[in-house]
Amino acid sequence: MKQEWTPVDPRYTHYLQLHALVAMGVIAIVIAVQYFIARWGAVLPAWFWSFGIWAAITLLLLLLWAPRRFMYTGYCVTDDLLLLRQGALWRAQRGVPFNRIQHVEVKESLFARLFGLASVVIYTAGSQGADLEVPGLRKADAEAIQHRLLNEMAQQEFEGEGDDI
């Protein structure tokens, strides 16, 4: 089977960058507090070393990780299943057949809304959280996928009694 991967919206890169920036911002505040208020500066390396390492990681995340993750992220809807691939360094590809989907929702988180993005979240039975989340979609695309999946679910028919498994 040739899998035709559909890439997610390019704004997903900016969404990831914003995410990384916020996370690194929180870390920066925590470190700064150590230097200026908690007076642990004595045991920490000189401030420019800490700043240098922080800046290097931040740049790496913004310029390398986010674009790389965006490039690899994609989904594929075939006649009977949905596939999602994700990741930058550690990569994963997950497949869920339509006939195992319990419910589908479209999610718009605060950050995603800033970029006009949404994700489709899919649940299967007996699992604790979401089983598959296709991120970085335009809202219209997300709704189209949700619609398609709900249609497929409605058409599912199960055999009644089979004598064998």
Binding site: L89, W90, Q93, R94, G95, R100, D131
Partner: peptide
Amino acid sequence: YPRHKLQQIDIRQGPLLR
């Protein structure tokens, strides 16, 4: 595990595996 009752299947790769 009954094979027809599986719900999702993953393939995962870290840098070493790649």
